[in-house]
């Protein structure tokens, strides 16, 4: 059994909405509204959602840059939503982040050497020579030439900058990297390169990733376990095989059917299927969401497969699931 590296326990991030004459809090935007999942050491955990689903807020809350309303994020059994605990555990060294926009996340006035060395300087005391060796080593890991250390971010292409972002994240030998849409801005062949490097680094150093993305193809390629987020909650959670082969929740089905498929012969059939799922989603909201339009709590339907369902529907789904498996 793989060891858990981080556990998210009923995490909530709410933003107040103010209105009225006295500007009092009248309601909340429930960006993240009670989610639970855990990531194992050295695995890639996928978090999928569309814009506004709360997936990025979740990532930020995990690295500690977003104020958590309630709930806990347990690292080595300690709740790191308290900043004192983060300091004590060296959490900010062990957990790093990669951003989507490589241009704005790298300081344009700093050379690559300083950009990559910055996290090392924060956490380790190295001599100048040792530090330079380390930076060279990191650049080597992400396949960048050694003269890159003297250059500035704007001298690189998007894919190269993203690899520099990976090198910086890896600099402190982290245990977990939260990657928020790391390849969304990249071309296909460049994306392939960055994803490959991420995989290789993982194998070499045993780093766990929380891979946040809207691209189900990429997440499928990268992660063993994943969760699908909608309206601040998780609608379905489980292993890759379970989710992609036996999706239960209508929202998961809708997302999956919306991915364009490279299968020219069956595109009409695929389109009809998509229309069916869309109609089901539009017409049966009350079946899949509670009366306030919120996602139900997760219920177990199979080993390593949880779906947001009302209690009775969960039992039915379980039976259906079993039958489907028999047929496979």
């Amino acid at each position: 059994m793989a060891k858990e590296i981080i556990k998210i326990d009923d995490l909530k991030v709410h933003y107040p909405i103010r209105s009225g004459f006295w500007n009092r809090i009248t309601d909340y935007v429930r960006a993240v509204d009670g989610i639970n999942f855990s990531i194992n050491e050295g695995e890639t955990y996928g978090l999928i959602g569309e814009s506004g689903s709360g997936k990025s807020t979740t990532g930020k809350a995990i690295v500690g840059v977003e104020k958590v309303t309630s709930g806990r994020v347990l690292y080595k059994g300690v709740d790191i939503t308290k900043s004192g605990n983060r300091r004590r555990l060296d959490y900010n060294k062990d957990v790093q982040m990669i951003f989507q926009d490589s241009m704005s996340s790298l300081n344009p006035r700093k050379r690559i050497e300083d950009i990559i060395a910055e996290p090392i300087r924060n956490f380790e005391k190295l001599t100048t020579d040792q530090e330079r060796d380390r930076v060279q080593e990191l650049l080597d890991i992400v396949g960048m030439p050694s003269d890159a250390i003297y250059k500035y971010p704007h001298e690189f292409s998007g894919g190269q900058r993203q690899r520099i972002g990976v090198a910086r994240a890896v600099a402190t030998n982290p245990k977990l990297i939260v990657a928020d849409e790391p390849t969304s801005a990249l071309d296909l062949s460049v994306q392939a390169q960055v994803l490959n490097f991420m995989k290789h680094i993982q194998q070499q150093y045993g780093i766990a990733y929380l891979f946040i993305s809207h691209d189900l193809g990429v997440v499928k390629h990268m992660s063993e376990n994943l969760a699908i987020m909608h309206r601040g909650r998780l609608v379905e959670l489980g292993s890759r095989e379970e989710i992609y082969r036996h999706p239960v929740h209508i929202y998961t089905k809708r997302l999956l059917s919306a991915i364009p498929v490279v299968d020219v012969d069956n595109r009409e059939a695929h389109k009809r299927q998509r229309a069916l799922v869309e109609r089901e989603f539009q017409e049966n909201q009350s079946k899949w969401y509670d009366k306030d339009g919120r996602v139900y709590p997760l219920q177990k339907v199979a080993e390593n497969h949880f779906v947001a369902l009302p209690e009775d529907a969960a039992a039915a789904a379980k039976i259906k699931e079993l039958k489907e498996k028999e047929r496979d």
């Binding site: 296909l188 062949s189 994306q191 994803l195």
Partner: peptide, 24 residues
């Protein structure tokens, strides 16, 4: 052919994706 190969579509997830050498 290279471009099609670099799509993360395959069911073989352990496989590395195809990378085109060099840059545009």
């Amino acid at each position: 052919r290279s471009l099609l190969n670099s799509m993360p579509q395959s069911d073989d997830e352990s496989e590395d994706l195809h990378v085109i050498q060099g840059t545009v």
